[in-house]
């Protein structure tokens, strides 16, 4: 086990002074090396839960316990946002090396690690390009490279492909599986899409809104390694129906 989420809640105070429960008491384990997806409608607190795992949001009550030492430096958590959030004045290579620069890693080691990670995401030939010269899918690949370059113990992804067209999204899903097989990272992934959830995940936590909570957790028993062929399996379609039912 990597992380235990122990009875965590989050309450925001709205402008009118009203208390809004973003996340009701939630308990969840994140296993070492697993691909865990949080799926649910808007307002179910999946983004809040993800941001708590990242340390961006403090729980109102409850605890998040890391196995071993709690993350001391940013280098323990990688985060991929809905948008690429690349620094537009830096080249792709400099963007990917950026975390290492801020951690004080020396330039040569940083360049080496950044180049390896760019190769992993298939952007080796675009190291010198500026973000504006990349397509949406390529920008998001650079963002993934930036989140992986410092080998974090946990990679968090907040609807990373939701802004991409369907074809690009399918390709990015396959690439994400390949990248994961290569680096063996633990990933917590947030999505609206049942297809994405069933195709990518080892486990899917289905959440519901008002108040936000985890309704049920499924272990997706589809064969690995996953690929296009999996999408033709009756079991895959059974999972899609199951997840749709849960979300209703």
């Amino acid at each position: 086990m990597l992380i235990e989420v122990q009875g965590v809640t989050k309450t925001f105070v709205s402008r009118g002074g009203e208390q809004v429960v973003a996340l009701a008491e939630t308990t969840l384990d994140v296993q070492q090396g697993e691909f865990l997806t949080l799926i649910g409608p808007s307002g179910c607190g999946k983004s809040t839960l993800l941001r708590m795992l990242a340390g961006l949001v403090e729980p109102t009550s409850g605890r998040i316990v890391w196995q071993g030492t709690a993350p001391a430096r940013g280098s323990e958590v990688g985060f991929v946002f809905q948008e690429p959030v690349l620094l537009p004045w830096l080249s792709v290579l400099d963007n990917v090396r950026f975390p290492l620069d801020t951690f004080g890693v020396d330039r040569r080691a940083g360049d080496e690690a950044a180049r390896q990670t760019l190769e992993l995401v298939g952007l080796k030939d675009f190291a010198r390009a500026l973000p504006k010269e990349l397509s949406g899918g390529m920008k998001q690949r650079a963002a993934i490279a930036r989140a992986l370059v410092y080998k974090p113990r946990l990679v968090l992804m907040d609807e990373p492909f939701s802004a991409l067209d369907l074809l690009t999204r399918d390709r990015m899903n396959d690439e994400l599986l390949a990248i994961r097989a290569e680096v063996g990272a633990t990933i917590v992934f947030v999505t609206h899409s049942v297809e994405e959830a069933a195709y990518l995940s080892d486990r899917v936590a289905v959440m519901s809104a008002r108040p936000g909570q985890i309704r049920t957790i499924h272990t997706i028993d589809l064969p690995a390694p996953r690929g296009e062929a999996v999408k033709d399996l009756p079991a895959f379609h059974a999972w899609l129906s199951q997840l749709r039912r849960d979300l209703r």
């Binding site: 941001r51 990242a54 340390g55 961006l56 940013g74 958590v77 990688g78 985060f79 946002f81 809905q82 948008e83 959030v85 950026f98 975390p99 801020t102 951690f103």
Partner: peptide, 9 residues
């Protein structure tokens, strides 16, 4: 999100 990135790192 840029500000969140700074916090993450």
């Amino acid at each position: 999100m840029m500000s969140e990135l700074c916090s993450i790192l």
